[in-house]
């Protein structure tokens, strides 16, 4: 027997939890449209990557799916992945290092708008872009820091730390003028076990690896850093480094971690190592690279979940 009773309807209606739940979910939906976003502080990055494209970066000591890949390939893959993971409004610029110079290919561009361009430019990096063949890492780092000093970007310098030809410890690059002026990171790449460096002919065909006779094993530049009395066949003018050719394993390449750490200390940059199973940059370890900026973030899901909870309660209680 059904009967409408306006007074009774009202009391029952107010007592009915279903009506309350329905109203609450509607209210949550209203809140969703009124406050769709909220301001949140997030780390926004402005990074310029300067990547070592010297020959030792062709050494294959990373693995992807059990296939050996060169350091440069691995850096490129990690970098493309990293760019994808950056929050919008972050900016990424790209540069390369070889010889004793760094050059910037493009200034930082916004990652969300410029993702396709960034991705293609990173993919196109090649050791054959090197305009000269030495690998003076300290010089390249100093040059990169000078280029970026006046700009609002942090430097990420990616290298394996192998100076070629080897450095004469008497002549070290002086970073004192730039120490601490620039935020940034030195990212060491390569394994700790020395591996051979592939050799290519002028057409780009691989022709084996560098042998011990292909490279100098010590610095022959400037005054000798050795004690003359200890050098066999020393002659101040004609043989300042002794009469024997130095032997060594400069034709093999491993990550010179202690050298890069030393450079990091001298320049005031952080140091990190790029490992096979880790992301390119462990943001947690280098919070100083980003800057806190308030961004609008979507929080509609929060209200939608509230509405959902109330709505389902009608059925499930």
């Amino acid at each position: 027997m059904m009967r409408f009773n306006s007074h009774g309807l009202k009391t029952v209606y107010l007592k009915d939890y279903r009506a309350w739940c329905l109203l609450l979910s509607l209210l949550a939906m209203a809140a969703l449209f009124v406050f769709p976003t909220h301001k949140r502080n997030a780390d926004i990055y402005n990074l310029t990557f300067v990547i070592d494209i010297t020959r030792s970066m062709n050494a294959e000591d990373y693995r992807i799916a059990e296939q050996p890949v060169s350091r440069l390939e691995f850096v490129k893959l990690s970098l493309r992945e990293f760019v994808r993971s950056l929050p919008c409004q972050s900016k990424v610029g790209l540069g390369v290092f070889t010889e004793r110079r760094s050059t910037i290919l493009f200034e930082p561009i916004e990652v969300c708008n410029g993702y396709p361009e960034l991705d293609k430019s990173i993919a196109a990096l090649d050791w054959r872009m090197a305009w000269a063949a030495d690998s003076r890492i300290a010089g390249g780092l100093l040059d990169a820091m000078q280029l970026l000093e006046a700009k609002e970007t942090a430097l990420v310098f990616i290298s394996d730390g192998q100076e070629a030809p080897p450095l004469n410890p008497r002549y070290r690059t002086d970073f004192s003028a730039l120490n601490g002026k620039l935020k940034g990171l030195i990212l060491g790449v390569g394994g700790l076990q020395p591996v051979p460096i592939p050799k290519f002919d002028p057409k780009g065909q691989r022709i084996g690896v560098y042998g011990p006779d292909d490279v100098p094993h010590r610095a022959y530049f400037g005054d000798s850093d050795l004690n003359p009395e200890k050098i066999e066949g020393y002659d101040a003018r004609n043989a300042p480094f002794g009469k024997h050719a130095a032997v060594g394993d400069e034709h093999m390449s491993a990550l010179r971690e202690s050298y890069l750490q030393q450079l990091a200390a001298e320049t005031g940059l952080n140091y990190q190592r790029l490992q096979n199973d880790r992301p390119l940059i462990d943001i947690g370890q280098s919070p100083a690279l980003g800057s806190q900026q308030s961004i609008e973030s979507d929080r509609r899901y929060y209200f939608a979940l509230c509405a959902l909870g109330f709505f389902l309660a009608i059925f499930l209680i």
Binding site: G93, V96, T103, I104, L105, F106, E107, P108, I109, E110, N113, G114, P116, E117, K120, S121, A124, L125, D126, R128, M129, A130, W131, A132, L147
Partner: peptide, 27 residues
């Protein structure tokens, strides 16, 4: 290009990216 060619920016309509690349030639 100098001694070697440098790939800088693929063909794109993203004018900001093009400007970023042209600006970088100031170094």
């Amino acid at each position: 290009y100098s001694t070697s060619p440098l790939f800088v920016m693929p063909l794109t309509e993203n004018k900001q990216a093009i400007h970023a690349a042209i600006d970088a030639t100031s170094i």
